[in-house]
Design a protein around this nucleic acid. Structure first.
Lengths: 341, 341
DNA sequence: ATGAGGGCGGCAAACGTTATCACCGCTCAC
DNA sequence: GTGAGCGGTGATAACGTTTGCCGCCCTCAT
């Protein structure tokens, strides 16, 4: 039951510790015969390498920290899943940290992870501005990749969905299905997702109808705000409600139904992110799906880069193309509610 | 920028490495004057202890593995959040592993975590039977606490909600609001949550109405099954549909509405777990809330115990009391749909 | 005065690996 | 025939801590 170490295997296979290490780690070529003997001995003794010792010596823990604002935000679990799988495939373990949507605990968690000597950090910043300092200092110590949301220019590498393209998909779809009077429920603040989606809507809607690009209401990314915004926007009778994410859309949908509006007959509703809830809403929500697996793969790839790599200008910002998922909530204006599905 | 170690601090403060270690770790009493000097030096140099070296020497990484079936299951994120917080409060980092609902990858992840020398394992087993072996061997190596679901008797300590009590709360509530012809949509299989909730329903319903304890349909814990089960059960016109979890209930609700049933006027629907979706459903779902924070705290507490602690008989199985959350989906039979809220 | 005891502090040995260096024996080319 | 080159191997020094043990000095009781 005692822990079997390299020394034991060396003893049992009649060669030196160094050789055993080389065989097992494959660091350097080693004689075929010796290799076989060593492997047999290791197997027989049930040797399991000690990652801690390895980490101490090689100065690399094979561990990456994953820091996110709130795991309970329904958009994150799917992303976390993809990240976990991508990283595990690269033999890296994931140290999870939940920030409670608070920049202060975020900084604390980052430090805790750094103290644990993570090889790299994957981070979804809580706030564009208030996360910046902690992120910047962390980025100076380990490779760091920003996910989903940005954090100011040149702070670190980042990978996210192309919000502008996504919003364009939505507007094109609405235009193609005959909607002419859209409005937008978005989120205030400078967070990249909020700002980009908002700007993209305004640009796209203006192109759609130069005369009246539709009203815009700004709150936060929540169901409650979706409900409240509908109360504000519905009186002007838009024929499409474009929402900055699925939570807002879920709230909007709920309130519209309570108000007796016919979705999608009278008004279409669209979301963004394609969280699991989107397919379950009634009517099912048309939305923009993020390429989660690709985002994760790209993030994992970026992580391989060196820590203080070059000047800030050298930061990369990867943007991946989203996909439109058309569901019942945006069926043609003539359609009656519930007709789809 | 080079890493500052105990040696540097020792040099700067004019005492030995051992003393510095003792001051910083508080292992043994040390002179007040010396302590101050050391602390000042450490502060000045920006010393940050190396957890890896510490782990190697002290044979404890301060890390626990969290293994779960599928982070995308909407019940888990809230639980993960509580666990992360509870563990962080105890200065332990969380290594996350997602099993894709597959016992084989589950075993692989457990081994990977063990190789990383986690101090303990927190595990939500994928399957009552097929997870058993991997769990048992893991439990022999480190303290292991089973969460939410059991895994056979005496395999490891476990902490979960009291499913029987929860189901009783639901049935009492339904009886009190005049429902007399309940039915149950549950999950097949031996998983503890499925089996316990099913058994509890049967016992409770039989007590409610000895003549006809209501029909039971068994599938899995999914929205799709909820929809399908309603098709099977609705023809017999129950006045309450008791679901084994919220996903099933969401599906049932959706299908019932499609069929034109009046919820809750004609038929009440209840769920279990109180996932975020429950409050968003329409009508909002009456359900049983799990005491997540308490579950997490209890799990963290149990983790402190020793590894191969005593005979299997000594395993503890903590059960915590749930809470009934009454929402619109089970308002009195006389109520019209949408009247609540 | 002297021995016992206790509070502090230092030395050095682990912990289990990987990395550096040297060495050995062989082949090949000159 | 000898030196260079090279694949394979072994000693051994790190990596940064914690910790057991010893020794110092000061105090107090005898």
């Amino acid at each position: 039951m005692a822990e079997v170490t390299l020394k034991d295997v060396a003893l049992a296979s009649g060669c030196s510790i160094a050789t055993v290490s080389r065989v097992l780690a494959g660091t350097r070529p080693v004689g075929a015969e010796t290799a076989r003997t060593v492997r047999a001995a290791a197997e027989a003794l049930g040797y399991r390498p000690n990652h801690v010792a390895r980490a101490l010596r090689s100065r690399s823990t094979g561990t990456v920290g994953l820091v996110l604002p709130q795991i309970t935000n329904p958009f994150f679990p799917s992303l976390v899943r993809e990240l976990e799988h991508a990283l595990h495939a690269a033999d890296r373990a994931v140290l999870l940290a939940d920030c409670d949507d608070d920049p202060v605990t975020e900084a604390a968690r980052i430090n805790a992870l750094l103290a644990r000597r993570v090889d790299a950090l994957l981070l979804i910043p809580v706030d564009e501005r208030r996360s910046r300092e902690a992120v910047a200092t962390a980025a100076a110590r380990v490779p760091l990749v920003l996910l989903d949301r940005g954090c100011g220019p040149g702070v670190a590498d980042s990978v996210a969905v192309d919000n502008v393209a996504g919003m364009a998909l939505v507007l094109d779809h609405l235009a193609a299905t005959g909607r002419r009077r859209p409005c937008f429920i978005g989120a205030a603040g400078t967070a990249s997702a909020a700002a980009e989606r908002r700007a993209a809507y305004e640009a796209g809607a203006a192109a759609l109808d130069p005369g009246a690009p539709g009203r815009v209401a700004l709150g936060d990314f929540s169901v409650e705000w979706g409900r409240a915004a509908v109360d504000r926007l519905w009186p002007s009778r838009p024929d499409a409600v474009v929402c900055a994410n699925d939570l807002i859309a879920a709230g909007a949908l709920q309130r519209l139904r309570q108000l007796g509006a016919d979705v999608p007959g009278e008004v279409a509703v669209t979301g963004f992110d394609d969280i699991p809830l989107a397919g379950l809403a009634d009517p099912a929500l048309t939305t923009v799906r993020q390429p989660l697996a690709e985002l994760a793969a790209e993030a994992a790839r970026l992580l391989a880069r060196s820590p203080a790599a070059g000047p800030p200008a050298a930061r990369r910002a990867v943007r991946l193309a989203p996909e439109l998922v058309v569901r019942a909530s945006s069926a043609g204006p003539g359609a009656r509610a519930g007709e789809a599905s």
